[in-house]
Design a protein around this nucleic acid. Structure first.
Lengths: 180, 180
DNA sequence: GGGAACATGTAAGTCGTTACATGATTAG
DNA sequence: CTAATCATGTAACGACTTACATGTTCCC
C-alpha cells in the first residue's frame, strides 16, 4: 500500500481558518508551517481540484478581472480533517545523508569527516538561532493569537532537534580528533 | 534538477569492505545503517545493474548451483565514493506529520492532541531505550572493531534526537494541559 | 512603460514502495 | 519432506520536484 499524501490535509487545515486561493495557500504554508513542511504548486493545484471533486472544499471562480478561485472548506472537509487528526502519524522511514557520510567516513579520511561535521555544526547552530529568533518575533508581534501556543510548540521541537544536532556535532568532532 | 538517489553510494560504501550479493547487501544495510537508512529490493537490484554499467562495481556470476551475483567495488567506484563523501549532504526538505497534527490540533480538540503527544512520548522513549541498548550490545560484542567509533556516532545522534523528542513531548503536554 | 507580485496550471521525469513471480539450497 | 532462508528480479503505482507556459494587476 502506497503511503498517502498529506497535502490535502495541510490544505484543509489552512482553509479551516479562512477561504483562500491556491496561490495564497502556498504563501500561508510558507508563513505558518514552512519550518517543517512545504508544498510545490505541482502538488497543490491538482490536490485542490481533487478535494473539490470529493466535496471536501468548494471553489468559487471570481467573476471578471484576474482569474482566481477562492476555496472554502466544507462541513464534510472539516469532518475528514478531524478524522485525520485523530489518526496516529504514519512513521516516516528515517534517512540521514549526513550519517551515511559519517558511517563511511573512514573511506575518505578523517579530515573530510571533520570538514563535514564542522559544516553540520555551523548549520545546526544557525538553525537554532533562526528558530529562536522566529519564535521571539512572532510571539511579540502577535501575542494574543489563540493558535500561538500550538505554533510555538512546533518551532520548539525544531529548535530542540537543532540543538541536539549541534551538541552531537561537537561531541563527534571531539571523538574524531581526540582519536588521532 | 531532480534530487539524486543516494542508493548507489550506500551500496558502494558497504562493498568497500567486502564483495557481496544483492541479498547480502540488503541484510548488511539493515544490520549496519538500518537505524537511519533503508533500501528496498526494488531500488537495490536496479541500482546494482546501473553501477555495473557505469563500471563502479563488477559482478561475478557464480557458476553452477544457485544463481548468485557477487559484486565487488572497482577502483573507479572507490574514487566516486570518496568524491561523494566530500560533497556536503544535500538538504532534506523537512516534513513532520506529527507537527502538522500539533499545528492544527485546535480543530480536533485538545484531548486528541494529548493523545497524539502521549503516543509520541512513548515512541520517543522506546527509541531512546532501543538505541541505548543497541549501542551497548555492539560495543561489548565487537569492542575492537576499527569502525566502531563511527558506528557509535551514528547511533548517538539518533539517541539524542529521540531524547529531544521525548523532552519536547513532555513539555508540550504540560503546555496543553496547563492551559486548560 | 516596466517590473514585481498575483494567479493557475501542465508535462516530464525521478524516486521510491509494495506486491508479485520464481526458483534453489539448507536445516530440521 | 517441508519450511525457512537465500537469491534475483519486475510491474504497477503513487509521490514529488522542476521547469515551463501563460496571463493579469498593481505600483512606481
Amino acid at each position: 500500500m502506497p503511503r498517502r499524501s498529506r497535502t490535502p490535509f495541510v490544505l484543509l487545515g489552512l482553509l479551516s481558518s479562512e477561504p483562500m486561493t491556491g496561490y495564497q495557500l502556498k504563501a500561508a504554508i510558507e508563513r505558518s508551517v514552512g519550518h517543517f513542511w512545504m508544498e510545490s504548486y505541482g502538488q497543490l493545484y491538482p490536490a485542490l481540484k481533487q478535494l473539490e471533486q470529493q466535496g471536501w472544499v468548494r471553489g468559487k471562480d471570481q467573476a471578471g478581472g484576474r482569474s482566481r478561485i477562492v476555496y472554502a472548506i466544507t462541513a464534510r472537509g472539516r469532518e475528514e480533517l478531524r478524522r485525520w487528526l485523530r489518526e496516529p502519524p504514519s512513521p516516516t522511514p528515517p534517512r540521514s545523508e549526513l550519517l551515511l557520510k559519517v558511517f563511511f567516513g573512514k573511506f575518505a579520511g578523517d579530515d573530510v569527516l571533520v570538514q563535514q561535521l564542522t559544516t553540520a555544526l555551523r548549520g545546526a547552530e544557525q538553525e537554532v538561532q533562526a528558530l529562536t529568533g522566529l519564535a521571539q518575533m512572532v510571539a511579540s508581534s502577535e501575542p494574543d493569537a489563540p493558535e500561538l501556543t500550538y505554533w510555538l510548540l512546533t518551532v520548539d521541537l525544531g529548535r530542540r532537534i537543532a540543538e541536539a544536532r549541534a551538541d552531537w556535532a561537537k561531541h563527534a568532532l571531539q571523538a574524531i580528533q581526540g582519536e588521532q
